[in-house]
Amino acid sequence: MVYPLVWMIMSTFKESGEIFKTAARLIPDTFTLENYKTGWQGFAGYGFGIFFKNSFIIAGISTIGAVFSSAVVAFGFARCNFKLKGFWFACMLVAMMLPFQMIMIPQYIMFNKMGWVGSYLPIIVPQFFGQGFFIFLDIQFMKGIPRDLDEAARMDGCSIYGIFARIILPLVKPALVTSAIFSFMWRWDDFLSPLIYLNDPMKYPVSYALKMFSDPTVGSDWGAMFAMATLSLIPIFLIFVTMQKYLVEGIASTGIKG
């Protein structure tokens, strides 16, 4: 499982023309950092620093929107009573199960009529209306929180918004961090959405920019592509290392323990 990743990383230190000639060997004959230099320069005058910045903007804003909006919706399902609650919960589950390919064309038509195509709006704005998986995860956590805490907060004069902000959110921190990790990772790795909606190289994220190194008609710069792909793994790796405790707790737990 790890070998392809190790092979890619070691290939970044080989000369581009030697990568597949010496594919059977992990250790390059001559170490070189030229692939990183060439890759960072990017293409057509656009350096890879721009693409990394774009990816952080898309993934960062989308993660904030997805985590907060999902927590709000989950709180409504877990703690509030309203008409057709079961129906809307079923709709949420059905929407979560739909593959993106089924709604891809209707969404494009809708966003195109709104004049959003060519911008980050079709990629970022939908994240601010809740994500099914995160809503379901937050609901399971909130259901494990004793309702006595809500009643005690109400007796102290706390409103429904105060209960959500002061009681619920701190107790579902593992679920929120887990949602943030998955959301950031999915948006960082997303290739299809930028391919559909973005047409300006200045706005490309890393996931889409990596494709620009591949040109079957002329030749692909595999060394530069592998080098930038290796750098693109660093943010995800750091997030997993620093947030591993919350990730495990968020997935393994379904509520607080007393």
Rank of each mutant, 00 (worst) to 15 (best):
C91E: 03
L26C: 06
T63I: 06
F133E: 02
V177I: 15
P174C: 06
A209I: 10
L149S: 07
R166F: 12
K85V: 14
I236S: 02
D148L: 06
T242P: 05
P99S: 13
P170L: 11
I105L: 13
G157A: 09
T32A: 02
D190F: 02
K21Q: 13
Q127R: 15
F13N: 03
K85M: 13
S179V: 06
F129P: 09
S179P: 12
V206Y: 02
I196P: 00
I139M: 15
P174M: 09
R154T: 09
I57Q: 10
Q131K: 05
I57T: 11
T63K: 05
I57E: 12
I256R: 10
P235C: 09
W40M: 15
A224G: 15
M185I: 15
A152P: 00
F20D: 08
F237K: 00
S119Y: 04
E18P: 01
P201V: 08
V206I: 14
F13A: 13
M228A: 04
P170S: 03
E15H: 12
G250M: 09
S220V: 03
A23W: 13
S16M: 10
M202G: 08
V218E: 04
V125M: 11
G118V: 02
P205N: 11
K245Q: 13
M243N: 09
V218I: 13
M104R: 15
G86C: 01
F77W: 02
I57W: 11
K203F: 03
G42R: 07
S70R: 06
A209R: 09
F100K: 01
G132N: 04
I103N: 01
F20Q: 03
F164P: 03
G65Q: 11
Q131V: 15
V6S: 03
G39S: 02
D150G: 06
K143C: 05
I251C: 05
K257C: 02
Y108P: 08
L247F: 15
M96E: 06
I168E: 12
S220I: 04
G157R: 05
I123H: 01
F134T: 06
K21C: 03
S62T: 08
L149Q: 13
M243T: 06
M185H: 10
F182K: 10
D29T: 07
K143I: 04
I239Y: 07
P146Q: 10
